[in-house]
């Protein structure tokens, strides 16, 4: 697993990760400095994290994959297994992205608001980093062309952050005569960003603002089983695309 070292070395030199860390640090510092109510800051931070973390993770990973293409080609002629190579690339990327997140968001949160909601924000941020990196690896392994790969990942991000919400709202509106609470629980599982949001929101008191659906959510996700479910589904979201990426990568021609 020496390869990870070279992957990390390569990533750190691109300075993109440092910029990402600095940006997160700036945002969280600003939010904690301007707001006296810590849990309100967490809520604001959550909204930013839910947009920025998936976006940066998916785009950075895709760009990194295509930029490492020469390195990957070089390694393939060496006595190194393809799965090990891809996993090293993956670990290198998520280690650096997670480190950036933990310094940029984790440090301020632990300093100013180290309670349940703060910790759950960190967990959900790290999981989202994993999930969107592994989706990016899958897309990049399938797509040969760099521009197309980045396009597809951006589209996926757009879908998960915006389009999905529209679809859900549309469904809620259309079928408002029917009890949709249980179905909404299912819908949430289809979008990791939503899952991340619910996971954090339920640690705060704001879930009361979410109305009847919120109550159902709280009843379900507030329980140990619900937490376990949310974590399990998120881990699935991280593992399944990675598994598919490995499968594609193993059969790929270079």
């Amino acid at each position: 697993m020496k390869i990870i070292r070279y992957v990390l070395y390569d990533i750190l030199r691109s300075r993109m990760i440092i910029g990402y860390t600095a940006f997160l640090l700036l945002v969280s510092a600003a939010l904690f400095a301007t707001e006296t109510n810590a849990s309100k800051s967490i809520l604001n931070l959550l909204n930013i994290v839910l947009i920025v973390v998936p976006l940066v993770s998916i785009v950075f990973t895709t760009i990194h994959y295509y930029n490492s293409y020469q390195f990957i080609e070089l390694m393939l002629a060496q006595p190194i297994e393809r799965m090990k190579l891809l996993l090293s690339e993956f670990l290198g990327v998520i280690l650096s992205l997670s480190a950036a997140f933990l310094i940029g968001i984790g440090l301020p949160v632990l300093l100013f608001s180290a309670d349940g909601s703060g910790i759950s924000l960190l967990i959900s941020g790290i999981l989202l980093t994993f999930i969107f990196s592994s989706i990016a690896f899958w897309v990049a392994a399938i797509t040969q062309d760099k521009a197309k790969g980045i396009g597809v990942t951006l589209l996926l991000w757009f879908y998960f952050s915006l389009i999905y919400d529209f679809i859900v709202l549309f469904l809620m509106f259309t079928f408002s005569d029917y009890p949709l609470e249980k179905a909404m629980l299912g819908f949430t599982a289809l979008n990791p960003i939503d899952l991340g949001r619910v996971f954090v929101m339920l640690q705060m008191d704001v879930s009361a603002l979410m109305g009847y659906t919120g109550a159902v959510y709280k009843q379900f996700f507030g329980s140990a089983l619900g937490m376990f479910f949310a974590l399990g589904v998120m881990i699935m979201w991280a593992v399944v695309p990675l598994f598919l990426a490995i499968r594609v990568f193993k059969k790929k021609d270079f």
Binding site: S68, Q70, E73, A77, Q78, I80, R82
Partner: peptide, 28 residues
């Protein structure tokens, strides 16, 4: 993949990480 320990490959168009120096490639 162990059989590749016994192989040396010189590609037609060698492609190497752009930002590495020759010495770094060798060291790696």
């Amino acid at each position: 993949c162990d059989y590749r320990r016994d192989m040396g490959y010189m590609p037609q168009i060698g492609r190497y990480p752009d930002n590495m120096r020759i010495s770094q490639i060798f060291d790696m």
